[in-house]
Write a protein that binds this DNA or RNA. Structure first.
Length: 299
DNA sequence: AGCCAGGCTCTCG
DNA sequence: CGAGAGCATGGC
């Protein structure tokens, strides 16, 4: 099926960012102009490919078959994962009155805030990323997906679904530790998989809550502090005004761009970032995209 | 060879 | 309450 693309939208930039400019990152694959993702629908796995047609449409195809209803589902999910439903206009108006931010991220026009497939995926990714460098986090996440995610062969591509809570639970804490997680993080992720399956954590209910309510709910989970909850809101719920003020990389970036490298406190960042309201989350996403592209050495 | 990296929990004063 | 230890791996 084909879905209409919004303006502005830069497919290559958006999917390149999502895959860390390495073709494959976690369950996301970008190859030869097509974005691949295995979507889970009520326990069934839909190998899905998305390619822009060049005339303002996105072609969404199920690679291993599916009903017409599955196709509609995949189209809607793809639109969400690629952030096509987000109106970027307000954020670009913020850019117009923040020349420093504009200088850093102005060339990222058309980048969409991509999303994880589920709250579970965002939780696992964020917990993995706690405290460690982005490089290490990526290595560990790739291992989790490859070892615990179901492999789906689609044409000449091997795709992996993001691991279901069942698979994470079945791996056990020891199994997770063998995938390079610390004992602590293995417990956290194992526990959250169990919470998901027992209905302790209900993503549908989360999405009805406002930001602070949802953060409070998530922080109730063992292993989830404010930083992790904030990233889950951005990455899974698509919230645009969340500011992970405790994020070390964000603090350093703001410090470098605005304060000539002088350290900025968490409270200082929270106050400073009011200038981006109500798009503090989008600003954060763009700053990380700026960083990621810089480090990847992409022109 | 250390030390640090997109934090969090637990334990002690 | 606030401060501090411990955590695991990969890169510099």
């Amino acid at each position: 099926m084909r879905i209409p693309l919004p303006e502005p939208f830069d497919f290559d930039l958006t999917v390149g960012h999502q895959t860390h400019y390495r073709g494959r990152a976690g369950a996301d694959l970008y190859d030869d102009g097509t974005y691949y993702r295995v979507l889970s629908r009520a326990g069934r796995l839909l190998a899905t490919a998305a390619t822009p047609t060049g005339d303002g449409l996105l072609d969404v195809t199920l690679l291993n078959g599916g009903s017409p209803d599955d196709e509609v589902f995949a189209g809607e999910r793809m639109a969400e994962l690629l952030g096509l439903d987000v109106d970027l206009g307000g954020f670009y108006a913020v850019l117009d009155r923040d020349p420093v931010l504009a200088a850093a991220v102005g060339s990222l026009r058309g980048l969409r805030p991509t999303r994880a497939e589920s709250a579970f995926e965002a939780l696992v990714q964020s917990i993995v990323a706690q405290q460690i460098s982005g490089v290490v986090a990526r290595v560990i996440r790739d291992g989790l997906v490859r070892e615990l995610g179901v492999s789906v062969t689609a044409g000449d591509h091997e795709l992996f679904a993001f691991p279901a809570p069942e698979a994470v639970l079945a791996a056990g804490i020891d199994g997770l530790k063998q995938l390079k997680l610390s004992a602590r993080k293995a417990e956290y992720i194992h526990g959250i998989a169990r919470d998901m399956l027992e209905g302790e954590l209900d993503p549908d209910r989360l999405s009805t809550m406002d930001d602070e309510e949802a953060i409070a709910e998530l922080v109730g989970l063992r292993g989830v502090g404010r930083w992790t909850a904030e990233w889950v809101l951005m990455r899974a719920l698509g919230r645009l005004d969340v500011l992970p003020a405790g994020d070390l990389a964000l603090r350093r970036t703001v410090s470098d761009l605005y304060f000539d490298g002088a350290e900025i406190s968490i409270e200082g960042l929270a106050e400073f970032a009011q200038r981006w309201s109500p798009y503090r989350g989008l600003a954060t996403t763009y700053l990380f995209a700026y960083l990621r592209r810089l480090r990847a050495g992409v022109a």
